[in-house]
Design a protein around this nucleic acid. Sequence first.
DNA 1: ACAGTATTTAGATATTTGTCTAAATAACTA
DNA 2: TAGTTATTTAGACAAATATCTAAATACTGT
Lengths: 84, 84
Amino acid sequence: MKDIFKALNDETRREILELLKKEDLTAGEIADNFSISKPSISHHLDILQRADLIAGEKKGQFIHYSINTTILDDVFTWLLTLKK
Amino acid sequence: MKDIFKALNDETRREILELLKKEDLTAGEIADNFSISKPSISHHLDILQRADLIAGEKKGQFIHYSINTTILDDVFTWLLTLKK
DNA sequence: ACAGTATTTAGATATTTGTCTAAATAACTA
DNA sequence: TAGTTATTTAGACAAATATCTAAATACTGT
């Protein structure tokens, strides 16, 4: 839960999730959507992956990333308890 | 949205929300639930208030804080778009 | 007016975070 | 094998964050 909120607390990472919502993308394709360096994007992908919000699968030289929305259910549940 | 995720990205602040879910509390009563200093709690309350997740109303020397869960709808909506 | 209580503001400090460049790893291609 | 491409890892650095103590503000009651 801690990791999820941390992962969501960054505009770049939220945008990455929005991109991956539409389609799976490689690390490079994701980086092309931003003006920050590839190592920085790689770092963001690492944080998203640690939170289990995305998964990366290596295919040759590429790593294909996909979103995992099931983990968001934990957030939904927690938020719902606040609304009683 | 930025402010909400920032506010939620801290264990102490999430616990404060859980406390306020049950009942309205004064700043001092909230602080009594934690082992950190009152100024630190005051700072957390400020961040929660800026995110509009709580509201404080002054009554004499006390400030009564209450939760505002309607703002969470924005988070729900955003999270739901990720699940398509 | 004075002393006590509730809370915040100010300023300092250590830790975490996001970013960068340079280098390393891994895979493809000729 | 050598060169190119895709991605990550390592190390440095500035900005943001959480915390603290001390002081300021505001209200209460005598």
